[in-house]
Design a protein around this nucleic acid. Structure first.
Lengths: 344, 344
DNA sequence: TAATGTTTTTTAAACGTTTATGTTGTTTAT
DNA sequence: ATAAACAACATAAACGTTTAAAAAACATTA
């Protein structure tokens, strides 16, 4: 396929392949004139290095694996989108994977990335400590890894996230101060950061003297992509209503559910925020347009992406300097935007 | 990095590398017993073939390049999402790229994909005939290509899209039948399929005896990602109002704009659908939740993705059968869902 | 001028595969 | 019994790079 190679250039210019290779890599041991000849010829004949040969020889690639649970989640989508933007001027190429929040799929992705010998990985793991052994193995073998968003994970490396419990604490407190007492917490089963977010929610209740009710933690099974989440939500709300426990406010700790709940409440003829106020984690830029406009806890996605990329590049460049492994956790500030869904 | 190779296995089992390779590839000229020994050893020691060596030798990869204008557009997002789903069970790996609708970026992506020697490409081109020479070149050199969504493009290959003019014709006609006469058409400058969609819009007007007004084609420059599209939309509507030409309906021919226009009209205190009815092209599953619920012309995204993948695999398998190049254009049926934004 | 140092280039091996060709030993047909 | 056919493996070259080491070319110095 690729007709023009280092060898063919060598033959054409009556030089050795070694010289061509060095000239193309701007080695100091090739004189200016020769370099110019080679570069000119290469350009003229549209020489393109064979990635596979190069990688085979050097054992290095310029690939960055990006592993996320869902592409359809506004937060992860925005993250990837920004990642593409910051990676563009660099020489690195992104290889994204979604795991559907399943450890098995995550493993497949990681094995593939390992096989591709990626230069680094940016990952929001499927679960707490999911594939931790594999990740540690790759990490030890010189593949730098950045954890983001779901940073409660055993791997020792740079981590980028937000202060989850603090965010839900404040959201819950806001609702409490507006007089809401029956506040439910909505979250996906096995969805990252849930624990921390629930903790903040509970603490807010505690500090305001409101009793915590186990029934008010609404878990929704998220695993099955084809599942009718709307239906499940309706059922769960119906159960609460039957027990005479319909909440007067909902804090959602999960991106996608924050939006779904609006539609479900609407179809049940429950008014937002009059009957139930809603504040949710999500990063959709459509929040303003929703009915009603949704109060959101938004992660600083673009900064996270930028930081993730920069930290990774730093680690990849450092290479085997084998620094004393002083990894840091970066907790960025989230922004809560109050819109109609939580006003009273 | 990869410790265990064909060579090392050969040494360990006192066989030649050729035998190991053949055993791993289940060649008929290796006897059962030997194969079993090799497979067992490989499994036990976690042998992973070196992709680069393999690709270098065979000149083939299992990569599929996916080139789209925007990842942030609901339609393309859904397309990619589904593509991942159908590609998962196969042995192919997706390498997505977004071009920001810029031919230069598209070229970069294609050059990269060519360098990676991808087995095939699925693309919705930035513009009509953008990078057509490059695409043709790659195509001729044995890289099968599937065009989707924006199929008005010079490349001769399988194409998958919808009947754009028909869809906008029907949407416009619906509005006309409800008595709207001042119908504007909203679209992105240089956004694919615009021509066809405008044609359908014009024909509907024509067939219903409503005069076409040049001012009612509202082009919005889409290129600059940081541009304040909302502001631009406001300005354009303001201009129309000043000329006493405020429309009573809007058909949007562009995914993202279909959503944006809702917010803009809202902020101008224009009622939907009373003052202005809206029907738009888009595939967001949030259409129901928007304020007001948005009438949408939805492409059959998942079928498109599935078909694109299947056709591509077929072409990749066929290889150099050099079939008489009987490429087909598949025009799938879109679905128009009428919601509140277009009811009167 | 010859020895020395420096710059520039070549030689050759290697990365981990695949595959055409060669070699061996065994079976089958005549 | 012997030639032919086959099964099962080994040898060796190749894919397009990179890079250590050797070699050549040139420049400098005594």
């Amino acid at each position: 396929m690729s007709e023009v190679t280092i060898k063919s250039i060598a033959k054409a210019l009556d030089l050795s392949p070694a010289t061509i290779s060095r000239a193309l890599n701007d080695s100091h041991e090739i004189k200016r004139a020769t370099k110019d000849r080679v570069l000119a010829y290469a350009k003229k004949h549209n020489y393109r290095p064979n990635t596979f040969a190069k990688n085979l020889k050097t054992g290095k690639t310029n690939l960055i694996g990006v592993v996320i649970p869902f592409l359809s989640s506004p937060f992860f989508l925005e993250f990837i989108d920004e990642l593409y933007r910051v990676a563009l001027p660099s020489n690195y190429t992104l290889v994204p994977f979604q795991t559907q929040n399943q450890e098995a799929m995550e493993k497949e992705a990681l094995l593939f990335l390992r096989q591709q010998n990626v230069a680094g990985i940016i990952i929001s793991p499927a679960h707490e400590n999911s594939n931790v052994a594999l990740l540690e193995d790759m990490h030890l073998n010189g593949c730098p890894i950045i954890l983001f968003d779901r940073i409660q994970h055993g791997l020792q490396t740079h981590k980028i996230g937000i202060h989850n419990s603090m965010e839900t604490y404040q959201a819950t407190e806001t609702l409490l101060k507006k007089g809401r007492k029956r506040i439910a917490f909505l979250c996906g089963k096995d969805i990252g950061n849930t624990k921390d977010r629930i903790r903040g929610y509970k603490n807010a209740l505690l500090n305001h003297g409101v009793a915590f009710l186990e029934e008010y933690i609404i878990y929704v099974d998220y695993q099955d992509p084809n599942q009718a989440i709307d239906e499940e939500l309706k059922t769960r709300l119906g159960e609460l209503k039957d027990k005479n426990l319909l909440p007067d406010a909902i804090v959602s700790g999960t991106d996608t559910l924050s939006i779904k709940i609006l539609g479900v409440l609407g179809s049940l003829a429950i008014r937002i925020p009059e009957d139930i106020a809603v504040i949710g984690f999500t990063n959709t830029n459509l929040a303003d347009y929703l009915a009603p406009a949704l109060s959101t806890i938004q992660q600083p996605t673009q900064e996270m992406a930028k930081l993730a990329f920069e930290l990774l590049v730093e680690l990849m460049d450092k290479k085997s300097d084998s620094g004393a492994a002083d990894y840091k956790s970066f907790l960025l500030a989230a922004t809560t935007v109050y819109r109609k869904s939580s006003l009273i």
